[in-house]
Simulated assay, not measured.
Amino acid sequence: MNVLIVFTHPNHQSLSYAFLREVLRGCEENHVIQNVQVLDLYEEKFNPVLEFGEKKKRRDIYKDPELAKYRDQLSWAEKIIFIYPIWWGRPPAMLMGYIDKMFASGFAYKDNGKLLPDGLLKGKSVVCISVMKGPPFYPMFWLNNAHKVLMRKALFQYVGIKKVKFFEFGNMENPKGKHQKKINKVYRYFQKLNKQIS
């Protein structure tokens, strides 16, 4: 299995980074996972701003040479892991900018005149690992599960990815937030992951 980890947090002392370390440890101990690549969007200095106009058409983003290596990563990956905080009820702008650029028509999907396009990333699976300050029930009851709906339906389903798993952890700025228990849960998941449960 080829695994791409897209990490989105500016601070390597953060809990998000602790989750990244444990995901890597779990992957290293799993014989099913042969190859792992990590894309640290902040360290990469990825430009999340989507710009287009008369000279640079939005319909041509899928062949932008500046994004070629990121397209290669997504094409190569069988499983894509996104690790990020929840800010204002949604992923950081840095990650959303990556999605704006990379999940483009011609690469991630193809319009067919129907309600949903032809997803060009079929066969891949996704794991979203997110942390937030608020309580775990906040997104579901206060925000109508907006984060998961956004990621699962508006994004991944649209490009043909059906297998999506969420680790959405709340109370992560609370000293009693059971941080280590949650980190261990993620580590064990990747340590035991196989293609049947992926």
Rank of each mutant, 00 (worst) to 15 (best):
Q34V: 10
P48Q: 10
R59H: 04
L39H: 00
V126N: 09
F82R: 01
K57V: 06
Q157R: 15
F190E: 06
Q13H: 14
F52W: 14
R90S: 13
Y17W: 10
A93Y: 00
Y42R: 05
N174F: 03
G119K: 12
E43R: 11
I197Y: 10
K165V: 12
L50C: 07
Y62A: 12
G170P: 06
M172I: 10
Y17N: 13
F107P: 01
V127H: 11
L116Y: 15
Y189L: 03
I183M: 03
A93R: 05
S130E: 08
M94H: 07
R152A: 12
K79H: 10
L20F: 09
L150I: 02
L50W: 00
P139M: 09
M94T: 07
G177P: 06
G89D: 03
F7Y: 15
R59D: 12
A77W: 04
A104C: 09
P91W: 07
K124G: 10
G119N: 10
G170I: 00
L24H: 07
F46Y: 08
N145K: 02
L115P: 06
P91Y: 08
V131M: 10
D40M: 03
L95F: 11
E54T: 15
F19S: 01
A108S: 11
F103H: 03
P139W: 01
M94K: 07
V127T: 15
K110D: 04
E78L: 03
W76P: 01
G160C: 09
A18R: 11
G89R: 11
K162A: 14
V186W: 05
L74N: 02
Y62R: 08
R188E: 12
K110Y: 09
A77I: 10
Y158N: 09
R188W: 08
H12S: 13
L155W: 06
N194S: 14
L24M: 15
E43M: 05
L41F: 03
D64Y: 09
P92D: 01
I197S: 15
F52G: 05
E173M: 15
L39C: 04
G89S: 12
F107L: 01
Q180G: 06
N112E: 02
Y109S: 05
V36K: 05
S75Y: 07
N35F: 12
H179E: 07
N184H: 13
Q191N: 11
I161Y: 02
K185F: 02
F156H: 10
K69Q: 14
F52C: 11
L4D: 03
E51N: 03
W87N: 00
M1T: 14
D118Y: 07
Y138H: 13
G134V: 10
W142Y: 14
I86D: 03
V49G: 05
K195H: 11
A104V: 04
A108D: 00
V32Q: 12
D100S: 02
Q34F: 04
P92I: 01
P91A: 13
L20C: 08
L41T: 05
D118Q: 09
E168G: 01
S14D: 08
K63H: 13
A68S: 12
I5N: 01
K114E: 14
D64L: 06
P85S: 10
P48K: 07
G97I: 07
